[in-house]
Amino acid sequence: MENTKSVNTKKIGDFLLNYSLYILLGLMILIVISINPKFLSISNFMKILTQASTRGILALGAAGMIVLAGTDLSAGRILGCCAALTASLVQSVTYASRMYPGITSDLPVFVPLLASIVIAVAFCMLNGFGVSKLHLHAFIVSLGTQLIAFGCTCIYIDSQKGGAQALSSFNQTFLNVVNGGFQFGSFTLPYLIVYFLISAMFMWVVWNKTPLGKNMFAIGGNTEAAAVSGVNITKNIMGIYIMAGVLYGIAAFLEAGRIQSVNTGTGLNYDLDAISGCVIGGVSFSGGVGTVPGIVIGVVILQTINFSLSFLSVNPYLQYIIKGLIIILAVSIDVRKYLSKK
């Protein structure tokens, strides 16, 4: 009898430990709703999902590196650099101050998308090479790449004839591809949300149904054991970084269209949002642990908190503190889970 009781208590304890962050953040959202019931509307929910979409795609890329027991501090700046490139290629031909006056007709949309992906993959391969071949810590390599990407963005934006002005005035085709939506009567489902969901589904397949995904968890859990088991560490780490590069490139392309004006500040702190989303979603910094649905939920929860705090007009400085504490809380809960397993 006592045994059954203790098993039940343990089960409840485990449940609370595993879902404590979701419960707490859910409570926080409930408090916001009770203070201002207007928060609970479909249009607000769509705004949150739209804002979360590009950061979500970024997070799906960065999550692979966290599962490998590393991190990526360069994601935001790589996004900024690729967004600047995208923006320069999709400027309207009727805009007099466009970066490339030689382009006299709108480029097909896949051209800037491919350019963005190629640049993002190049930066990520640099990270991957540093981690897999030179055995440097991902933190240091990505810090270096972050600065390189930021420098490249500044030089590129500054190279305009008119000086360092924001890249804006995009062609309508590009804007329609990014900011359009499926119409269901009076309800519009933004394409951005659909792109995010497709990316998440694709990553779920990669993580769960391909050798690359299985090897990623093996390497993240114990690199030496994976190597002894015959996993090619270098090849798989490079594969994960290239995959992240593709996602960063897509996120940059979409972000340029979403914000419609790209400057040197674009992408600032996006990496931190992506990492926070992953940590809230249960991706462990100890490596080898994480799920795609968890990341999607983590990113959406983080965006909901951002949105709700702004909705309640909470002081932006306090918002930073709250977000910081939530990240520390998420990591603390992760460590607690690890300690109880040991």
């Binding site: 309640l312 007009s313 909470v314 002081n315 306090l318 503190i321 709250i322 504490l325 939530i326 809380l329």
Partner: peptide, 17 residues
């Protein structure tokens, strides 16, 4: 402690707004 801190700062933020 972290949960309490978040609750306090959230409360301060809401009261201030």
């Amino acid at each position: 402690v972290l949960i309490v801190l978040i609750a306090i700062i959230l409360a301060i933020g809401i009261i201030e707004s």
